[in-house]
Amino acid sequence: MSIRKALPTDNSGAKVVVQKSLASFGLIADFDTLDAAIGALGQSNTPNAIELVAEVDGKLVGCLAIQRMEGAIAKLFGFHVDASMQGQGIGRTLLREGIAQAVIHNFTHLELDTWGDMGAAVHLYESLGWVRGPDPLPESGADRFYCLALVR
């Protein structure tokens, strides 16, 4: 497995991973609005400060994007791992690298919105020290909010 910066050629593969992941929860990806961070992954006009993909044997199996929000606060978007590859530590490794890159970019906090039904992801966040905060507004496309204070 390798984790690397996303390239323009990764865009379509990342979208497939996200579409399949969301579909498994009965959700539909919308790369123009709620999932726009992955829609822009690898593109020259990306709003993302950090874009990473996970590969196994040359196949893209995971992705994430991090955007600066306000000041030194950033938000994690589009963190997904191919369902057939889950349980192998890929998500943990990908997320840890995303956190490490956020520290390098001088972010002090990471935030994310997620669904409580995404039990494996919620467990991963909590195991890495993310703290649940006030639930996001319904139009956010999620029902849980988490924050992680970054240590330098």
Score class of each variant (00 low, 15 high):
F31L: 06
C63T: 02
L124F: 07
F77H: 15
F145T: 14
G42Q: 05
M1E: 02
F79A: 14
V103C: 07
R144H: 03
G87A: 07
D82Q: 14
A6Y: 02
L7Q: 14
Q101V: 10
T9I: 11
E51S: 03
R132Y: 00
A49G: 03
V16P: 00
T108L: 13
Q67V: 13
E55L: 11
L34Q: 12
T114L: 06
G87S: 08
W130N: 08
K5N: 11
G78R: 14
Q88K: 12
A37M: 04
M69K: 14
A14Q: 01
S140E: 07
A14Y: 01
Q88S: 09
L128K: 06
R4Y: 06
T9N: 03
A83K: 11
L7W: 10
R4D: 06
I66M: 06
S21L: 03
R144T: 13
F79Q: 07
S127A: 13
R152G: 09
V17G: 00
V103K: 13
L41K: 02
F25S: 10
S2F: 04
N11I: 02
I90L: 12
A49Y: 06
A83Q: 12
I73Y: 08
G133E: 09
G91M: 09
Y146P: 06
G39L: 08
L41Y: 11
L95T: 07
R96T: 07
C63A: 10
A40D: 13
G91Y: 09
E51R: 00
F31E: 04
R152C: 07
M85I: 03
M85K: 15
G87W: 10
S2A: 09
W130S: 02
D82L: 13
S140Y: 02
L128Y: 12
F31S: 04
F79S: 07
P138C: 06
G42A: 12
A23V: 00
P8D: 01
L128F: 09
H80P: 00
Q86P: 02
F107E: 10
L34N: 09
A23K: 15
T9K: 08
H105D: 12
G58P: 00
F25A: 05
Y146E: 08
G71C: 02
H123T: 12
Q43W: 08
A54S: 13
L52S: 02
C147V: 14
A6M: 01
P8F: 09
V61P: 01
A36E: 14
N11P: 05
P8T: 05
D30N: 15
S84I: 14
I99T: 07
D10V: 00
L110Y: 07
L94M: 04
L52R: 07
D82M: 08
R92L: 12
A6V: 00
G13A: 14
D135E: 13
E111N: 13
A120N: 09
K75R: 14
M118E: 10
E51H: 00
I3C: 01
I99S: 06
R144F: 04
S12A: 12
F145R: 15
P134D: 14
I73Q: 09
K20H: 15
F79Y: 08
L27S: 05
K5D: 08
A23H: 11
Q86H: 05
V131H: 12
D135I: 01
F107K: 12
